[in-house]
């Protein structure tokens, strides 16, 4: 408890205008409770990191947010900058992307490997183009309005290809890209849906240090553009600590810490979760910390 108390002493800017509010979410698979009574906020314009040891339930949380699972209990409230609100737990998965504007990437990359990079990015703009093609009918007749819309979509795709450094390979199949580039393309594809919230499932997994640094730049870039907030699952602490504004820590499906990177880094429960310390020892460390803080602040 003390860790939560200590973090409440510092300002928590992400509570002011959260893009996503997760409230008391529980996800149960048969007898297994993968996520229990989880609540946290994702601040608008922030980069929020969701971390925790393997099997902590991070991807399950993502799947609840993006509609691939329906949480057993709880509420997921998404609020657009324009003020529209969506209850994600009540929406089917494709509508969460189409209407609530939540985009995601996958832990084991899911690209359309037999389609070119450009095609991948155009598929991401499906709904807009579908409207422009008059639900296909105008498109089949070859109306110029669709041609114009397609040109715009190609421009959007080009913009994101540039951002991710993939322009030179635009006409190659996605399956031919090296691993790191595939990760970047997946982010570009998600961005082409024009999301309010971008959920990245271990974007730095398998990247070398240079690629990891490029990823940081890309994510900071996206944040700077201001429209998209980012929620990411990550194991690479250098990514988490360098770029995130807010970190939520899960262990065994329960939130054990929530705060700024430096707060979380020093939270004894997080240290215990990552280093595997007994509960008793955690209490001991907490007591010591309490004594220290009491001693420090008269």
């Amino acid at each position: 408890m003390s860790s939560v108390l200590s973090s409440e002493q510092t300002p928590r800017p992400w509570t002011a205008d959260p893009v996503l509010t997760v409230e008391h979410v529980q996800m149960r698979f048969g007898g297994l409770v993968a996520v229990n009574d989880l609540s946290f906020e994702v601040g608008r314009g922030d980069i929020t990191a969701l971390i925790g040891p393997n099997g902590a339930g991070k991807t399950t949380v993502f799947n609840c947010i993006t509609g691939f699972y329906k949480p057993t209990q709880g509420m997921l409230l998404l609020k657009h900058a324009a003020g529209d609100t969506f209850l994600l737990e009540r929406m089917p998965d494709f509508r969460i992307s189409a209407k609530a504007k939540v985009a995601r990437t996958f832990q084991n990359i899911r690209l359309f490997s037999g389609m070119t990079l450009l095609e991948n990015l155009l598929v991401a703009q499906h709904n807009r183009l579908m409207l422009a093609s008059g639900m296909t009918i105008l498109g089949v007749l070859g109306m110029p309005s669709y041609k114009r819309a397609e040109k715009e979509s190609i421009e959007t795709a080009k913009f994101w290809l540039d951002k991710t450094g993939l322009t030179a390979r635009a006409d190659d199949p996605a399956g031919d890209l090296p691993y790191g580039a595939q990760r970047r393309l997946e982010i570009a594809r998600a961005m082409c849906t024009g999301p309010e919230l971008l959920c990245l499932d271990e974007p730095a997994a398998g990247l070398n240090p240079r690629e990891s640094a490029e990823l940081n730049t890309l994510l900071l870039d996206i944040r700077q553009m201001g429209k998209t907030s980012i929620l990411l699952i990550e194991h690479d602490m250098s990514v988490v600590m360098e770029i995130s504004d807010h970190v939520v820590v899960l262990e065994y499906g329960v939130k054990i810490s929530d705060g700024t990177p430096s707060e979380v880094r020093n939270d004894p429960r997080v240290i215990a979760a990552y280093l595997g310390v007994d509960d008793e020892e955690v209490e001991k460390v907490e007591e010591q910390l309490d004594e220290l803080t009491e001693g420090a602040t008269p």
Binding site: F94, L122, H126, N127, L129, R189
Partner: peptide, 26 residues
């Protein structure tokens, strides 16, 4: 014609990866 329209691309994308399609709002 349809292959070059969003619906045709969505068909091919569906053949490639249905879950990714759903994550893109299709």
């Amino acid at each position: 014609r349809l292959r070059k329209l969003p619906v045709g691309r969505a068909w091919e994308a569906l053949r490639e990866d249905e879950i990714a399609c759903r994550s893109l709002g299709i």
